[in-house]
Design a protein around this nucleic acid. Structure first.
Lengths: 210, 210
DNA sequence: TATCCTATCACATATTAATGTGAAATAGCC
DNA sequence: GGCTATTTCACATTAATATGTGATAGGATA
């Protein structure tokens, strides 16, 4: 028996889902709510296996609700429900530990299947959502980035700059004269096309040189 | 009719999959190969809808094969096949534009369903893979990070610092005296517990303040 | 061998940044 | 009304950085 809680602001849909799920063998709706105002206490009280969470709700929306839940409970499975597969929400939800993400228009039989899958540790996703998730991955792909051709010693100096060291500290750290440090740094600035320490540091972070 | 190409080094499995797919209504195996040595030319010649690609192959493995394909062709759907759902390969494959990722032990009926889903733009994934993908997302999650309580004006100044502006430039940019800029920056350093421009810039990047 | 790049160091000067010590106006809070 | 934080500005001093113009030595390479 999979125990379920439901957060959905639309009364019709809330009723409909409750009837569908509760009327199916092996599923039980413990409670349903129209928003996440007291989500922490409610989840604590009912101890469900799976939570169906609408993304778009008044007062406290689904993403916030998810965050609140995850602050106290990392075991309960949270299945996000949404009308649109809009990019930002998908990313936010997954980032915050949602266990699945399905469209509301999912047919009833499929929805029950998704709930079962979530309960058993799977990650059910509507096909269009899964496609988006994959797209996000390929977009995350690191920019090949220019090479800048920093020498080993220059990289070393840049690393020290990033760590907030002064020229004097770098000199003593690397056992070289401060003028040598200057000389390296000048070369680094030329190669990175910058002209100050903080610009070099920023560029080092942006282009993942460090 | 979905046209399929198959890359799989194990002869038994290659034969088995070919027979399964080719023997099913609406599916056609155009060709199958035991490695990706000539993948670019082969794909170019056969123009399949979907490619089933084993991850673990000799000479040129599936990930490399995928990369080669994507260098020339962004439309063909590539479905990765693997024995284990090992983290690194999953990430690499998805990053490089795989359209789905399924375990070899997937039952035949399900596999055909996955192929269909991939062909129609979906992103079929074995449940255990999907779970991993979601886990990757929540691991990417930015550290909540300290708040530092920077005021609006201070954030603005910090943003300029990150952009590599000097005090003078910030002053003229913000229409305030340079001494005011100094005053803000001093406060910023106190709040961030740093004592130089470049440290502040580094911290801004690390803690995603900007 | 001549040339280029890297790494090292030196001296000088100008600009920027950091620190210290004030202070005044405004806004929010209890 | 006091308390606190923010935002604004001023003057002075010290420290750090940036820029310029050199030089020497070793290693790679054409």
């Amino acid at each position: 028996m999979i125990k379920i809680m439901l957060y959905e602001d639309n009364p019709q849909l809330r009723e409909g889902l409750t009837m569908l799920i509760d009327g199916s063998e092996g599923f039980q709706v413990l409670a349903s709510f129209k928003n996440c105002s007291n989500v922490v206490q409610e989840v604590e009280a009912f101890k469900p296996d799976v939570i169906l969470m609408d993304i778009d709700m008044p007062v406290v929306n689904g993403i916030e609700g998810l965050k609140l839940i995850r602050q106290h409970n990392h075991d309960v499975k949270v299945l996000m429900l949404t009308v649109f597969d809009d990019n930002k929400n998908v990313f936010e939800a997954l980032k915050n530990g949602a266990n699945g993400y399905v469209l509301k228009k999912t047919p009833p039989a499929k929805l029950l299947e998704y709930i079962t899958e979530a309960a058993s540790g799977g990650a059910p996703m509507t096909s269009s959502i899964a496609t988006q998730v994959l797209k996000m991955f390929s977009e995350v792909q690191a920019p090949p980035g220019e090479d800048y051709n920093l020498s080993d010693r220059e990289k070393e100096v840049l690393q020290h700059l990033v760590n907030g060291y002064s020229y004097k500290m770098i000199a003593s750290e690397m056992f070289i004269a401060i003028d040598t440090v200057r000389s390296h740094i000048k070369k680094i600035y030329e190669k990175l096309h910058v002209n100050s320490k903080s610009e070099a540091v920023a560029k080092a972070f942006k282009d993942k040189i460090v």
